[in-house]
Design a protein around this nucleic acid. Structure first.
Length: 586
DNA sequence: GCCGTTTTCGGCCCGACTGTTTTCAGTCG
């Protein structure tokens, strides 16, 4: 372990805390694992670097963070100062395995990881896969052939995700690097391109584009950024590096006259570019990253708008550039007017400290108001979710009363009562209709029994949607990007049911959910189904996800403002939800 | 190890599911 050149980032600190949690769990230590895990979550939710907090306020400042007490604060400070956490190193020595990697395999926890090491000497996923294939795992206690199959399936799933990262884990870094590029002397324009700009849900690598006269100087500055760990290539206009987070980043430097054409080219998608070049070709033109040319004469290239215009097309928003009909729509003048960032007025899925959220109802309301929202719905978990100490009917109604009281004190902001009720195995709900009838916003969601057959799962979800009290289907496919596949669900049938019953479908904007995903959003929109774009916030810092990631997914799904119920003012949003209920009761 | 409108000790992490078992350990949310 080399000494860190720079103080560890919040993500690195969180990872260390999470690894502590896994090792402690492995040894059956009570309560501490949860404490470390909560601290890791809190560290990740911070909006400024721990190193900065520690530099300004010392140990006390770290200790003052939520979920961080004296013990964990001391370990964090040790890590910040020395790049090491001795307790963690001791645990690693005692059980020298890649505990994070192994437990990333679904269904495999730290206890099993330890047995695998002690009995078979397995230290990492590669050795685990080999052992499963050779049938050696089935000999272990509580393991059988099925266990091996499940582990292999889990490993295959992880491999399929590959090195792609969720957009939410990448976008902040991409912005930071983009900002740094702007600051380099001589840089006229700078932009992040590639799939980040198209807001794809997962990102393979980062592409940056700069317009500057002195490419060498920019490349030099880029390659010597603190998070660069390796420089693969540094040419006249192209620099390729490996970043500390394991991703590759690509920088291109072009003259300003080519910036638009290059941005178009490096934003992609490849298929969109191919289609554009075909159009150019038909006109006897040539489109490349330097511009749109007739022979040697450049017709366009300074901006993307200029290039599109010269091709006889309106500007196509990056989120649509997948060659899935946007070129035809653009030619026909039928591109949708996409919902814009900043157009959401409310948030219809919020958890609080009544269940597994971190903050009070009022704190969430004030944080939402500070973001410019006009209303939120409080949708805490319900009874069946024991881990979140789910609300029963009495608690929900007590909360609704607390919300009524709060609303009397809030100025220019409205809090709706609500719930995130569980859809049970048979499609019934875990809260009685009489209680749901008294809530303003009812979302229903799947939280268990994910492996039902498609037929069963679809019947289950449809039955819940038929309940006249259910306004919104929350995170409809229950996937977790990179961790859990979507449930087997006939989404077309769900969309048809949403249309019939007036149920709103949610885009859950938590970065690891983004559920509904873009392609389903597009189907829903074209079927005339209404959407809600919600943060699913468990902490005030999550509220921004709705506008950042939820709107991005909506745009990728061709959604307009009119398709989104929480782009409406509070009373009209609620009225739309209630209209839908009314239609269904008749 | 953290936390506190039950406040410096004593709770917190509970129920369901899975795959293995024959009474249960491990994992998940």
């Amino acid at each position: 372990m080399t000494r860190a050149r720079h103080p560890p980032s919040n993500t690195e600190v969180a990872n260390a805390l999470r690894e502590m949690s896994l090792f402690l769990e492995m040894d059956g230590v009570p309560f501490k694992p949860r404490a470390y895990e909560k601290a890791a979550l809190a560290v990740e939710a911070l909006d400024r670097p721990l190193a900065e907090i520690e530099a300004k306020q010392g140990l006390k400042g770290v200790d003052a963070l939520p979920a961080v007490g004296k013990g964990i604060a001391e370990r964090i400070v040790e890590l910040l100062h020395t790049g090491r956490m001795r307790d963690l190193e001791r645990l690693r020595e005692a059980t020298p395995i890649d505990v994070s990697g192994l437990t990333a395999v679904e269904g495999l926890g730290p206890k099993t990881a330890k047995i695998l090491y002690e009995e078979l000497g397995i230290r990492d996923v590669r050795a685990l896969e080999k052992a499963c294939r050779e049938g050696r795992v089935r000999a272990l206690p509580h393991c059988g052939e099925k266990t091996e199959q499940n582990i292999l399936r889990g490993i295959a799933f992880l491999a399929g995700v590959g090195s792609r990262r969720p957009l939410g884990a990448v976008l902040p870094l991409a912005r930071e690097i983009e900002g740094r590029l702007h600051e380099i002397a001589g840089v006229e324009q700078a932009a992040v391109a590639g799939s980040v700009r198209r807001r794809k849900e997962t990102i393979g690598d980062l592409d940056f584009l700069v317009a500057a006269r002195d490419p060498g100087k920019v490349a030099q500055a880029f390659a010597s950024m603190p998070d660069v760990t390796h420089v693969y290539a540094r040419g006249a206009t192209k620099t390729l590096v490996r970043l500390a987070n394991g991703m590759d980043a690509d920088l291109r430097v072009v003259p300003a006259a080519s910036f638009g054409a290059a941005l178009l080219y490096f934003t992609g998608s490849k298929a969109h570019n191919v289609a554009l070049r075909r159009i150019a070709q038909l006109e006897g033109l040539k489109l490349n990253e330097y511009g749109l040319f007739r022979d040697a004469r450049r017709l366009a290239g300074r901006s993307e708008e200029e290039v599109y215009r010269a091709l006889g097309l309106p500007f196509v928003p990056p989120e649509l550039r997948e060659d899935t009909g946007e070129i035809e729509a653009a030619r026909a003048g039928r591109l949708p007017g996409l919902i814009e960032h900043g157009e959401l007025r409310g948030d219809l899925q919020i958890q609080t400290d009544w269940t597994d959220g971190a903050a009070s109802i009022e704190a969430m309301a004030l944080a939402a108001k500070a973001l410019g929202l006009e209303y939120i719905a409080i949708t805490d978990h319900t009874r069946d979710l024991a881990m979140a100490r789910g609300c029963d009917e009495a608690k929900l109604l007590e909360q609704a009363e607390a919300i009524r009281k709060l609303n009397r004190r809030l100025r220019g902001f409205r809090v709706f009562s609500g719930a995130e009720v569980n859809i049970r195995e048979d499609g019934s709900l875990d809260v009685a209709d009489e209680a749901l009838a008294q809530l303003e916003v009812v979302g229903a969601a799947i939280h268990a029994r994910f492996r039902q057959s498609k037929t069963q799962m679809t019947r289950r979800v449809l039955r819940a949607m038929e309940n006249p009290h259910v306004d919104i289907l929350f995170h409809p496919t229950a996937r977790l990007i990179g961790r859990r596949e979507a449930v087997a669900l006939d989404v077309d049938a769900v969309i048809a049911a949403a249309k019939r019953t007036g149920t709103v479908l949610e885009i859950d904007a938590m970065p690891d959910r983004l559920d509904l995903r873009d392609e389903y959003v597009r189907k829903a929109v074209s079927a005339g189904v209404k959407l809600a774009i919600d943060s699913d916030a468990h902490d005030p810092s999550h509220l921004a996800y709705a506008d950042e990631f939820g709107v991005a997914v909506a745009r990728r799904g061709w959604a307009r403002k009119v398709d989104v119920v929480n782009a409406l003012p509070a009373t009209r949003c609620l009225a739309q939800l209630k209209d839908a209920r009314g239609r269904r009761r008749r």
